[in-house]
Design a protein around this nucleic acid. Structure first.
Lengths: 353, 353
DNA sequence: TATTAGCACTCCTTGCGATTGAGTGCTAAT
DNA sequence: ATTAGCACTCAATCGCAAGGAGTGCTAATA
């Protein structure tokens, strides 16, 4: 037995209807719904077949049918194919984001939050956005400055203009000359170097050259190292977690509690980000249905993600989390638009910010 | 009619029992519960009085009594008096926090998150912590550095070692001498100045002295200004929002959704922080019961807050949000301990970090 | 006079059976 | 191959009675 055209149409009708209502859909509904002009009895027979094939299932005898994960998967895959080439134009909001993201100020945090918020408001689902991650971690600039007698400020800039500061407290005040020497020492040795390539030998050498001020060098290196650690700790912004209460199938205490924790702790979401960033498909849009999602607490949800690329190697993930019966069509459209616009930044003026 | 000793004891018994069970408590329960050895009938009479006085209320006829906000208030106030002088010693965890907070690195963010988490885990309520806020906003240090040909890095340090960076893109590369001049110009004019005192006249003067590079000065001033704006945007960390699901009276969709939104958006929580920071009582611990809380979405909750002071004028708020029938005793103890330990930092080595 | 025992009354909760209604599967007719 | 018709299933809903926790009131008691 195979999926002929008619079965497909019926399946589609079932899914569409279920997405709208959230209720199991019966044969009579479909017999009116589709343009096939078939009686409910015929539909019943077809539905029976579809169930046998695993595309739909019955919550209990004498109930209507609901799509299975397999059914959703088919539906989504077909939809993705249809959409393949169609590119929508960007809204004004997206253009504004583009502008601000390019500037890469510390406004970025608030822009991403705003973006998550906007998406959540538009879609009625929960959303998350990971801040763009810099892969190439070359040191671009290091500087020690004296803030007052006992305090030095370390400023570290890495490729992609990620800036990091830290304060160092010193016992004896440093004079200008020493400070200059240290700055030259650090910059000539470290500038342009990928952080990963800084090894113990190099640190030892620097310390030796710093003489009395080896302690300061050590603290600077600590600050650099913590940059790497920070890197594992992806920043993620979420919004619209409360939207899960709009879908009864997610709103019971048990599930809601788990989901809320997931959104609040964000730790688990990093898995999702890592997953999407590595597992590249052609389109950059990924759909996880139910158990397919890498985050266990979301096994009753569907997750649609898009990876965007601001500059070469500077990538982030946008995710929309909703119930299985999410409006895939709209969500994928929205993400596709957003993604293509964000990507445009990179393609427009290649390389340089 | 007044509250004699016996009425008070009965009220206390009702509240204690209700805190434990969450169920309306009847006269028979109390008659066994207390050491007063009174029959349930007597208790009934007293309860009737207590209800008339507004300390307790009945969800419906033929149900037991539950405490009213007024009842809780009396209970909490009395408890606070009893606790007045008793100071508990700090746990190991708190001591560790002390150490890290003192260093005021960018680790602070993760420490505060950790702290919120720990509190939530210990108490089974939702928690929030606001990052310590600097009041005195004197500029301590400004510096422009060249990162590459077209990019300048502005580093601004204000009192309390809050650091801010921003990138400035310039068309024509600046030579070292110009850069040095600009740095001297900015520092001699602005160093030690409270941000509020920087006015248009001063900016105009600086721009004039900067000549060709007035644009750069303008951008630096923007960065300084955004420091003030940031100030309004208090950083708040939350944890344990999922705990609200443990209390049926908060766990219905309507309420849960509102609360979750409050925790996620955090915007509303700043009101709470502002409230607590201005409205100082002696102890620094505040208890808002039900409608007393400044955040409307929490009208069915009780909120206990503590303000802590790391250095002079550097304050933050810790809050615990739970149901009305929260274990006030434990919560207040915990917060009191934490607060006193954090405050100790300030009192130990006054003024200087 | 304060306390208590007793009793009628209220009203929420629980359980249970009957009813309803949407939907199916099967069979026989078209 | 399609459809009409019918018996059957089963979750959901309703009504109702029983149960029980708790109150308020009254009259007896110490």
């Amino acid at each position: 037995m195979d999926l002929d055209e008619r079965k497909l149409k019926i399946l589609q009708a079932i899914i569409r209807n279920y997405l709208e209502t959230g209720e199991p859909v019966g044969s009579r509904t479909i017999s009116k719904y589709t343009d096939l002009n078939l009686s409910s009895a015929t539909i019943r027979n077809e539905m029976s077949d579809l169930e046998e094939l695993g595309y739909i299932l019955q919550p209990h005898t004498s109930a209507g049918r609901i799509p299975s994960d397999k059914g959703y998967r088919l539906y989504v895959d077909r939809m993705m194919l249809e959409k393949e080439e169609q590119l929508n134009q960007a809204t004004q909001e997206v253009k504004e984001m583009q502008r601000i993201l390019l500037e890469r100020e510390d406004k970025m945090e608030s822009v991403l939050k705003q973006m998550a918020k906007m998406l959540a408001a538009n879609t009625n689902y929960a959303t998350m956005i990971s801040a763009p991650q810099v892969r190439g971690n070359k040191l671009k600039f290091i500087q020690l400055s004296r803030v007052d007698k006992h305090q030095l400020l370390t400023t570290i800039v890495v490729e992609g203009n990620v800036i990091k500061n830290s304060m160092i407290t010193v016992g004896d005040p440093l004079d200008d000359e020493t400070l200059l020497k240290l700055n030259i020492l650090l910059n000539t040795n470290l500038n342009g170097l990928p952080i990963e390539e800084i090894n113990l030998a190099m640190i030892a050498k620097l310390k030796q050259q710093a003489g009395d001020h080896a302690g300061i060098v050590a603290e600077v290196m600590d600050a650099v190292a913590s940059q790497i650690k920070n890197d594992e700790n992806i920043e993620i912004y979420t919004s619209g977690a409360n939207n899960i209460f709009k879908y009864p199938e997610l709103a019971d205490n048990q599930r809601a509690s788990e989901l809320i924790t997931t959104f609040e702790e964000k730790q688990l979401l990093t898995e999702l980000v890592n997953e999407t960033l590595t597992d590249e498909t052609g389109t950059g849009i990924q759909v996880y249905i139910g158990n397919e999602t890498p985050v266990k607490t979301m096994k009753d949800c569907s997750v649609v993600t898009a990876t965007y690329e601001l500059e070469e190697g500077v990538k982030g993930t946008i995710g929309i989390i909703g119930p299985r019966r999410m409006d895939y069509d709209k969500v994928i459209d929205t993400l596709k638009t957003l993604k293509s616009q964000l990507d445009t930044i990179y393609k427009k003026d290649d390389g340089q910010t």
